[in-house]
Amino acid sequence: MTVPDRPRLNLDDAADSFLVERASDGDVSSFESLARRYGPLMRGYARRLTGSTADADDAVQETLLQAWNQLGKLQDGSAVKPWLMRICGRKSIDLIRKRKNTVNLDDVEPFDHGPGPERAVEQDTQMRSLVEALKRLPLEQRQCWVLKEMGGQSYEDIAKTMDTTTDSVRGRLSRARTTLMKEMEDWR
């Protein structure tokens, strides 16, 4: 009788909650599967917030470190994605605060791997216009808007991240929306 190939659960296919359970017990490879699953999402988001690839990588690293240390506090393992995005949003905003306007935020610098996927954005005129319109928004409005629309954060989470009140977040989002809608009229 030959020894059958034993089926193995591939961690990269496993459910978030399973990986969280293992990782919170100290299983590094389960944690790395989570990092691979949500790393690109966090990096793209952090770059949109910080405007810099180096800062985005720092934000992702700090996010993962905090996640590793606090994974045990996450009650519902299946909610790990929004949880990571919340931490990542906060780390990105903290990084911007630390360097206090010393970096030009007008341009989101491209990732350094050739002329590939940037084209996807360039080719879509409307998306290009949205990017331009976002650049013209006042910094805090833009941050609130990205945290909500791209990070999926609630008003309460954004208020915590931005160290302000939910009313102020509401106001900033309302002004950002009005401006963007007005500009969108011109894109048509």
Partner: peptide
């Protein structure tokens, strides 16, 4: 779409 493009560009 912009969020999806950002993720794709992130590598």
């Amino acid at each position: 779409q912009l969020a999806a493009a950002d993720t794709e560009q992130a590598g």
